[in-house]
Amino acid sequence: MGEEIKGDFEPKIVGFTCNWCTYAAADLAGTSRKKYPPNSRIIRLMCSARLDPMFVLKALLNGADGVFFSGCHPGECHYIKGNFYARRRIAALRTILQQFGLDDRFKSYWISASEGEKFANTMKTQSEEVKKLGPSPFRGKIL
């Protein structure tokens, strides 16, 4: 696996989005026919607070080239305060990933349901950034 991907590298990105904001934004981007690269695979969660940082770790260790997380803007959570808790967890996880130079592969955004355009643009820049980083250090490794 590790050798084949050198030429034209198409990253695999795992995304976790909340049901009420970013998933709706992705939907809006689709219905309004915004174009964005097909690299991300989105997993819908009911709330950003459902994101167990283990999901991110597992995705990275299983060879995802990038992982992103996106939820409602702080203060606009459908469940009032879910994303406040999520923000603390993500800050902690990011601090840990920084120690191993993995933090560039993990992005987090706040994208609300009306920001379809922002979603498409974010996916575009993210895809380019991860392409620049190259394949995940865990790809093809025996772990």
Binding site: G75, Y85, R87, R88
Partner: peptide, 9 residues
């Protein structure tokens, strides 16, 4: 992890 501030981080 059981607390939060509205503006932080």
């Amino acid at each position: 992890f059981t607390a939060y501030e509205e503006e932080e981080l």
